[in-house]
Design a protein around this nucleic acid. Structure first.
Lengths: 341, 341
DNA sequence: TCGCATCGCTAATCCGATTTAGCAAAGGGA
DNA sequence: TCCCTTTGCTAAATCGGATTAGCGATGCGA
């Protein structure tokens, strides 16, 4: 039904010129290569009439660049938490006329290799290696131009990294409470009080704690969670409330905060009247909770954008080997923190 | 640093044969074209040693098929709700050795055209046109092999569609209540009682209502919501409770149910003790609510898988023009429904 | 008028594979 | 021994562009 695609040869014939000339005009090198204004117009008009669009596969083969990048993640692509990362990458890519391949390795190195190969075979211009949770990863050999998103290379690899600025986020959370007059009776749920008391492999936990402590906020106590799920937050907060009467809680993420809300309600304590709560991540649920949760947001969208920007900057030679880009985590002020009486 | 890729020419030279022979062996047509076992082994060994992998761009140019498909959505790709759709598509694609381009049109037809062009220019073998919420869409001309995901073509277009089976889901939700002995005093929140009382353009609302009513469940009353957000569910349920004392609620999605929970709590009613609640979507939040919400799940993952399967079936000529595939919506039995005393 | 530069365009090659057509050598029948 | 197949492989064309090298015509200075 639909006619064969219009090729450069068709265009050349329609305009009555050689394929070379047609190509020169279409790639904008007409001026440079002394094609007359008259012929140029003829070609452009024909291109318009025929609806000529160059075959990107052919261009890719000839030039070696496909205006395509690969986005390989452990599972981020489809996660309910971090889809915005893809969105940021997608928009930054579109602005550059670049398409995105996506793939999920599910943490399987064999699968990851396969995906990287499939992408390299398709001549992607670069690759974004993304992780669901901020962590260190081993970088495959011969990966070509690449950046790490939400991840740091385990042995230094020279690849640039883009990560959320968790330490500053920790400071921000603490400052939210300090600014509200909470100088003591502040407890931490999810990790702490020492940097050893954290869920396994959690870069976020460690850095958030560091940031919190740097502000000088006095941490009255803390409860670790083996994992940051609502039920763990619930259990940890219940345990805390058995012996203590907090005036403020720093929950190490929003899911933990859900559990904390629950435990506080059980204990007959109101948020924020009796206890102020501040958290991290800005999971969508944070603005559905009641009262709405004040939280320090993971900037997924910005992380995704930045990854593409850095990838291109790197290909242009504008990035130091191993450079780490920290993306600020903004505070979402909502209803769960109130000034201390 | 990393050596130039190994090409077919390199392989041929290493094996001491012509490029033709090397190609025949590598594409498995050696037998057919009478290449001797000896030579075949020589080529295979060389390929293994050199780590030869065919350049997919070149193959794409020559054969016209790229083992690549495009996934274009209004916004589904990055939505917190439907990332699983991508995941299903991704896995089904991987099983077939196919890569996925993704793109988001954000509902902008101009942007959509651009994305489709970018994909067609890259010679994708087929396209999945996906929608965030089930709805009817206008299908662009000359789209080539394509399927509609979570969408139906506005003027019939011959393209196959994959949609969740919302009518059966409505029946399922009603049956959950009927099975628990709720034959009356059941109210609907979000739409109804008639098929005109629905949010604009909501296929889901209409079909869920149809299914609910088909079971013969007596709907004691209903409240429409302009949009299915928690605050609307809250308002609608408050309004309902002002005049009525329900024993069960069918919320038309989980976000509405959050609001309903809130309103019930305000009114001093417990779930499920006083009021059973059943809902739709199985948003992640449903299993975090307290008590955990019984809900009829949108099978995002299965929808995504099915889209890829149908796309390939269609290219193989195994699909009727305009065929509609309805994917079952399973009930997630949790804690919000209890047998009526 | 001759030689040379410039102008305006095109022929030919290349990218890395697949595929068609065909060639040289060996085998088989008369 | 001659001719015809069959066997086993390869040369060459092709996909759709980008790019290099170069060709004929014109203009200019000497």
């Amino acid at each position: 039904m639909s006619r064969r695609r219009v090729t450069l040869a068709d265009l050349a014939e329609a305009a009555g010129v050689s394929r070379t000339t047609a190509s020169l005009v279409m790639t904008g090198r007409g001026r440079e290569l002394r094609i007359s204004h008259d012929v140029e117009q003829r070609v452009l008009r024909a291109a318009d009439e025929l609806g000529y669009r160059p075959n990107a596969v052919s261009v890719g083969l000839r030039t070696g660049t496909t205006r395509t990048i690969g986005f390989v993640s452990d599972t981020v692509a489809t996660s309910h938490l971090a889809g915005d990362m893809i969105k940021g990458a997608l928009e930054a890519a579109r602005e550059r006329g670049v398409m995105l391949f996506i793939g999920e390795s599910e943490g399987d190195p064999e699968l990851e290799r396969g995906l990287l190969h499939a992408m390299q075979d398709r001549q992607v211009d670069g690759i974004i290696l993304a992780a669901m949770f901020t962590r260190t990863i081993k970088v495959p050999k011969d990966i070509g131009p690449a950046v790490l998103l939400n991840a740091l290379p385990r042995p230094a690899s020279g690849l640039p990294s883009i990560v959320p600025d968790e330490i500053e986020a920790g400071r921000s959370a603490a400052r939210v409470l300090l600014d509200a007059g909470h100088h003591d009776e502040v407890y931490v749920i999810g990790a702490g009080p020492t940097l050893q008391d954290v869920p396994a492999d959690s870069v976020a936990a460690v850095e958030r704690l560091i940031g919190i402590r740097e502000t000088g906020l006095k941490i009255a106590g803390a409860r670790v969670c083996p994992d940051w799920q609502p039920e763990h937050g619930l259990a940890a907060t219940r345990a805390l409330l058995a012996d203590h009467r907090p005036r403020a809680l720093i929950c190490l993420n929003d899911r933990v905060a859900i559990g904390a809300y629950q435990a506080l309600a059980e204990a007959g304590l109101s948020v924020p009247g009796d206890v102020s709560v501040v958290s991290f991540d800005d999971h969508p649920i944070a603005s559905w909770m009641w009262p709405k949760l004040t939280t320090v947001a993971l900037p997924h969208y910005e992380l995704g954008r930045k990854a593409v920007e850095v990838l291109f900057a790197q290909m242009a030679g504008e990035v130091e080997p191993g450079q780490v880009f920290r993306v600020p985590m903004p505070v979402r002020h909502r209803e769960s923190v109130v000034a201390r009486a």
